[in-house]
């Protein structure tokens, strides 16, 4: 098995299945299981329906917010790891990748336990509410006017917030690692020179750290955005009725709706978008290196 050339691996497990899906997307559903290849564009035309465009847009919105939040959260983490003592750096990196050792499904169910109405967050909030309530009573104030008659759990699950929260949780390591890699490679004397020349720490961060970490930022954004865009499990388990993403629609076409041609068309539209993002990145980095070379 190991002696098989990689070309054959790619053909059997990647190119052939993908080609089949590509062909399905130009097919016509005949009866329950048969698909006739008619080279129709009807599936793609149907994907342009405002209903589906809106879901595409929503997916972009979720993936974009997720990427932005990941970037804002991951940058301080990456900096902290870079500047921590060499002894504990491997441990911190291990903590970042530790979630990968558990199945995504299990981690998502764990998030449900955290976020649900009687989950850990609401339990904590209720505890604080009780404490505040008792304190106000103690000082002879009527708490009902200030903090309400009784504790109302925060709606944290089965909505857009839960989806974005889940996506950030899942994708954070993908942002931390490339940022850490680029910060770790960076020559510290650039930062020291900036401080030495009179810049504050904050100014140094904006004028030196961020521009020099740009390759890591771009990599992080891309490898966060692309999988977030195609997320299926997180919106499926954590989302409400209005927080579906495109992958959920695709899944439904292949299963409950039993419309493989339309599902295939949606899949390929998502893939074309991904290709477009990667191509734009390649063009960007080529321009960057051309500028450096000239």
């Amino acid at each position: 098995m190991l002696g098989v050339p990689p070309g054959i691996w790619l053909t059997v497990f990647f190119i052939i299945p993908l080609s089949l899906i590509w062909l399905f997307s130009f097919g016509d559903k005949q009866g329950l299981v048969d698909i006739e290849l008619t080279w129709t564009m009807a599936n793609y035309a149907r994907a342009m329906d405002p209903l589906y465009l809106q879901i595409f847009l929503k997916s972009f919105w979720f993936a974009g917010i997720t990427t932005l939040v990941c970037l804002l959260v991951a940058f301080p983490i990456a900096i902290a790891i870079t500047f921590s003592p060499a002894r504990i750096r491997p441990i911190l990196l291990l903590l970042v990748i530790l979630p990968f050792w558990t199945n995504l499904l299990i981690r998502t169910y764990a998030l449900i336990a955290v976020l649900r109405t009687k989950g850990y967050v609401n339990f904590g909030l209720e505890y604080l509410w009780d404490g505040l309530n008792a304190t106000l009573m103690f000082f002879g104030m009527d708490p009902s006017g200030l903090i309400g008659e009784r504790f109302t759990p925060a709606p944290l699950l089965y909505n857009n917030f839960a989806v974005v929260f889940g996506l950030v949780y899942v994708h954070l390591p993908f942002m931390v690692l490339p940022l850490y890699a680029s910060l770790d490679r960076m020559d510290r004397s650039y930062l020291e020179a900036s401080l030495d020349l009179g810049a504050t720490q904050f100014r140094t961060f904006l004028s030196i750290t961020v521009p020099l970490a740009m390759p890591g930022i771009i990599s992080g954004v891309i490898i966060t955005f692309i999988p977030a865009l195609g997320s299926f499990l997180t919106p499926d388990l954590l989302g409400g009725t209005d927080s579906q993403m495109i992958a959920n629609v695709i899944e439904r076409q292949f299963k409950s709706a039993n419309d493989w041609p339309f599902g295939s068309a949606l899949s390929f539209i998502l893939m074309y978008i991904t290709f477009f993002v990667l191509a734009a990145r390649a063009l960007f980095s080529r321009q960057g290196s051309a500028m450096e070379a000239s």
Partner: peptide
């Protein structure tokens, strides 16, 4: 007194000329 408030400047061994 932090580096940015000292009346001193430094030429680094690696020069640390900002590449961007």
């Amino acid at each position: 007194v932090p580096p940015n408030h000292r009346p001193i400047n430094m030429v680094f061994q690696s020069y640390a000329v900002f590449p961007h």
